[in-house]
């Protein structure tokens, strides 16, 4: 059971210093076990900060975050992060990158080989085991980064705009792949994105954040509609033309636009 409990947290950067800055204020939210959450919001509203606190890469100023019942004290392999910058180890091959987290957990050679084979097949990247990241395209690098996190077998997967750097076509392929991988291998996921389509297409619930200081504006349920209309069995283009999809997308858009309005 890997639920994430974000228990009324506040994040103040430079607290106690000359210029404290409240990035997040009173955010209270629960992500259920194996739920896929998308987080959207205007730039600077604290999405990354929130995710980094769940990852244990950033401290919490007030409140507490618990994952699987345990308070987060620092980073750990139960909460693997997929960074926007991929963050693959340039001096390691695709194989070595994928098994990096597995080795932390003491997986045997046979288990590691099996996982490399499994994920490369799943990601349609057979035969790239011994290549180095710089020999791969951006989309392939991101797939390796995702494979590395999945192979670590974390209860929670944290992704910060993982497809942000990809071209539209690769991005679509990756989105479909992520839906497929998540269906075969459900995890608790927190997925940050700037794309409203992506957020609605992937998530069970979309969290819309606002800023000054960062807070949760609204949470929109998608899971019901997705299951009722069997989105995950159709190509992304078809899903995006459904009226149920455009309706949800419009809802998220309106919330974001109000946000922008607040500022201007």
């Amino acid at each position: 059971m890997s639920e994430i409990v974000i228990d009324n947290i506040t994040k103040i950067f430079g607290e106690g210093g000359a210029k404290p800055f409240t990035a997040i204020k009173d955010v209270d939210f629960h992500v259920k076990d194996r739920e896929f959450i998308s987080v959207v919001g205007p730039s600077g509203c604290g999405k990354t900060t929130l995710m980094r606190m769940v990852a244990g890469l950033e401290t919490v100023s007030r409140g507490e975050i618990r994952v699987a019942g345990k308070p987060v004290k620092g980073p750990g392999p139960d909460r693997a992060v997929v960074f926007q910058q991929f963050a693959l180890f340039p001096w390691k091959t695709v194989r070595e990158n994928i098994v990096f987290g597995m080795r932390s957990k003491g997986a045997s050679k046979a288990e590691r080989d099996k996982a490399v084979h499994h994920y490369l097949t799943l990601m349609k990247m057979e035969g790239t085991e011994d290549k180095y990241p710089h020999q791969l395209s951006g989309g392939m690098q991101q797939r390796v980064a995702i494979a590395r996190s999945y192979a670590t077998d974390p209860g929670v997967l944290l992704m910060d705009e993982p497809f942000g750097a990809l071209d539209a076509q690769t991005r679509t392929i990756m989105q479909e792949e992520l839906v497929r991988v998540s269906k075969d291998n459900p995890r608790t996921v927190m997925f940050i994105t700037h794309s409203v389509e992506e957020a609605v297409y992937l998530a069970d619930r979309v969290v819309v954040m606002g800023r000054n200081p960062g807070h949760i504006r609204e949470v929109i349920d998608v899971a019901q509609t997705r299951q009722a209309e069997k989105w995950s069995e159709e190509p992304i283009d078809d899903v995006m033309e459904k009226s149920s999809f455009t309706h949800l997308r419009g809802q998220v858009w309106r919330l974001l636009r109000e946000q922008m309005g607040d500022d201007m």
Binding site: G56, P75, G76, P77, R79, A87, F89, F100
Partner: peptide, 27 residues
């Protein structure tokens, strides 16, 4: 060394020794 590489290592469970040996040293 790119901070994200160190953080990637941390969130994939690497010990400090492994971070030193497999991330900082080659970087």
């Amino acid at each position: 060394v790119d901070r994200h590489l160190i953080e990637a290592a941390q969130t994939h469970g690497a010990s400090e020794l492994r971070i030193g040996w497999e991330v900082l040293l080659p970087g």
